[in-house]
């Protein structure tokens, strides 16, 4: 492995979970998640040479991962709707009731539009509104507006 490959490997090791979490938010099928992960790595590697460092490396990884998963999701729209989302998440060490609760909430999040789902994902990742805006290409005001609306939407869904 040459120096460039080693540098790339180190970056990916550091952000591996980030990429996986994005993949899991767009698919519950383990094989599909692994395929998505591999494809994202390929895209990252292809862009690694020309990554100019204009944005933070984490922002760049989120952008590439989300863009890839959203495009994948658009192509597979019908299949996505049929999947029982949230089943890919580990359930060990949780009570049955809590597990069901979390599953239901993930199901509701996955019923949201692709952009709203991305906003929730990035918010759950603990990113600031500025970072979320930079990744998605929307204003900070729009991020906060969307989060309020998403919470209302989730509440409505839970009442059905």
């Amino acid at each position: 492995m040459n120096a460039k490959e080693q540098q790339f490997t180190n970056i990916i090791r550091e952000h591996e979970r980030t990429i996986y979490t994005v993949c899991y938010m767009f698919s519950s099928n383990t094989d599909e998640v692994n395929d998505l992960y591999q494809d994202i790595l390929v895209r990252l590697w292809q862009g690694f040479d020309t990554f100019e460092g204009k944005s933070d490396i984490r922002t760049w990884i989120y952008r590439v991962s989300l863009n890839y998963c959203i495009n994948f999701s658009k192509r597979q729209k019908k299949q996505r709707e049929r999947l029982d989302l949230g089943t890919g998440f580990p359930s060990e060490g949780r009570s049955l009731e809590k597990n069901l609760q979390i599953k239901q909430l993930y199901k509701r999040i996955n019923a949201l539009g692709l952009v709203d789902r991305s906003v929730v994902l990035l918010w759950l990742e603990g990113l600031s509104y500025d970072e979320i805006g930079a990744i998605l290409g929307i204003s900070v005001k729009n991020v906060s507006f969307k989060l309020v609306r998403i919470k209302e939407q989730l509440k409505k869904m839970s009442n059905i």
């Binding site: 998440f89 979390i102 909430l105």
Partner: peptide, 24 residues
Amino acid sequence: EIQALKSEYNVFKEGLEKQETLNE
């Protein structure tokens, strides 16, 4: 529920399998 989700989310991330995919 969302706060619970956030804490569970971290547990989930810890549970993700580490993949050694980057090799020769």
